[in-house]
Amino acid sequence: MIALLVRDLRLAFRAGGGFGLGLAFFLIVTVLVPFSVGPQSSLLASIAPGVLWLGALLACLLSLDRLLALDWEDGTLDLLATAPLPLEAAVSVKALAHWLTTGLPLVLAAPVLGVLLNLPGPGYGWLVVSLLLGTPALSVIGTFGAALTVGLKRGGLLLSLLVLPLYVPTLIFGAEVARRGAQGLDLATPLLMLAGISAAAVALIPFASAAVLRVNLR
């Protein structure tokens, strides 16, 4: 399992690995928002948590179509499916590698980009907490979408359509935590919902991903 994680991380950082794609997209979105909505700092402050969450979610979505497609094209998935490693473990490790190379950089970049959107002071901590809790769910659900569409040529459109509705609960509660945090409101309920969604996704979805992958490899 560690070998697969190390290999995926290594591939992400080598030439053409796609590391930084999501991060660059996140940066572009948050830099352009003030230009498009105008410079009123009160307006920016009120939309900042939602914009940052939406940017992080779309940045995550952007890198999903490479998650399993490359391994399918060069036959690695066939060989992994016949290896001693259970497919459930393989997809979990691939989701973890995706989170480490896409989700975690977004979490770390978010407070810096919050400055550009005039995020209120108390919001920074809760923004990081909400993204830290929510992005693992995005990676795991995204892996499920990638497993569903593996083998389809140019499956990115279908993948986005399948995954977006599954992302909605995470987005609602994640952005709600960040918004209430920024306004200094009570946020226990959305925080617990977000943590519950993430925990359930991480625990259950790898089994679904492995099952659809087995069907798709036939």
């Binding site: 070998a3 697969l4 290999r7 591939l11 080598r14 030439a15 690995g17 060069d74 001693p84």
Partner: peptide, 20 residues
């Protein structure tokens, strides 16, 4: 298809499968 990653070296490719 051989399941080879083009950006990894020959040694890295083999060592990955050996440890899997």
């Amino acid at each position: 298809s051989d399941g080879i990653k083009p950006t990894l070296t020959v040694t890295e490719n083999l060592a990955f499968w050996a440890s899997v």
